[in-house]
């Protein structure tokens, strides 16, 4: 424990696109650090003590709902689980890029992710109708665990914000979208074939648009194996392309 309490200096991006008089700028706030202070605690203190208009998003505040991703000293992160003790005295907070700005640190991830779910049709395809009287289909626990591993994405948008390709073309599926595809591709309940997936995967916004910096995996708060996802989907796409040429 340090002897003296740190004085934290927050530099926060401000802009309200709904207000014609608003200009993008940063505001500075100072706070005394307290033990176990997270950005959730700090931002609420700033709003309640200094600037009640400051806009940001939190819901679960336990790194499960994915609401609170923002740029923390230049790096996308979930604010709720970021401890100020892990940061220098000067903390710069900006909204995530790529997503539409709602105001200050708040961005519209909901619209982007709904579009992604629509585009990837992120649901089990070609099922028989549900039979309420039937016992469930069997699945090995290993496969269930493997699907779950990829199902854990909380759609916070960190990987999208960190992605070079998504910053050029916001329609790029990015880590989250491609992970969603991998999750359904490995699910034996989903009847889509590799050929069905090929159109999405090999499109301009698909897996080959990745420019290979792999920041997505570095910033993912759930530590999803996004490198493996890219490898898996590229192999699948190549195999599909090659086999279609042979025909």
């Amino acid at each position: 424990m340090s002897e003296t309490t740190r004085q934290l200096r927050f530099e926060i991006f401000r802009y309200n696109p709904e207000d014609a008089d608003s200009e993008p700028h940063t505001d500075v706030f100072e706070l005394e650090e307290t033990p176990f202070m997270t950005l959730y605690i700090a931002l609420n203190q700033i709003r309640e003590k200094f600037d009640p208009g400051l806009q940001f998003d939190f819901a679960c505040r336990s790194a499960i709902c994915g609401s609170c991703a923002m740029m923390v000293n230049g790096r996308p992160a979930l604010a709720c689980r970021t401890l100020t003790s892990d940061l220098p005295d000067k903390i710069c907070l900006y909204p995530l890029p790529v997503f539409k700005l709602i105001g200050d640190l708040s961005v519209d991830t909901g619209t982007w992710f709904r579009a992604m779910v629509e585009r990837t049709e992120a649901w089990i395809h070609e099922r028989l109708p549900f039979d309420p009287d039937a016992t469930e289909e069997r699945m090995s626990d290993d496969i269930a665990a493997a699907i779950y591993e990829n199902d854990r994405c909380i759609e916070c948008g960190c990987c999208v914000a960190a992605c070079g390709a998504a910053n050029i073309d916001s329609a790029f599926l990015a880590g989250a979208g491609l992970n969603r595809i991998a999750r359904f591709q490995m699910d034996p309940r989903d009847q889509r074939t590799d050929a069905d997936w090929f159109e999405v995967l090999a499109s301009e916004q698909g897996v080959f648009a990745c420019i290979g910096m792999m920041a997505c995996e570095d910033v993912c708060p759930k530590e999803l194996p996004l490198l493996d996802v890219y490898g898996y989907l590229r192999r699948k796409s190549l195999a599909t392309a090659l086999s279609s040429r042979e025909k």
Binding site: W123, A134, R138, A144, D151
Partner: peptide
């Protein structure tokens, strides 16, 4: 629970 399996939930299995 079974309907959720039908929707795609990866339930832990026996």
């Amino acid at each position: 629970v079974r309907e959720l399996a039908h929707y795609g939930v990866p339930w832990s299995r026996v």
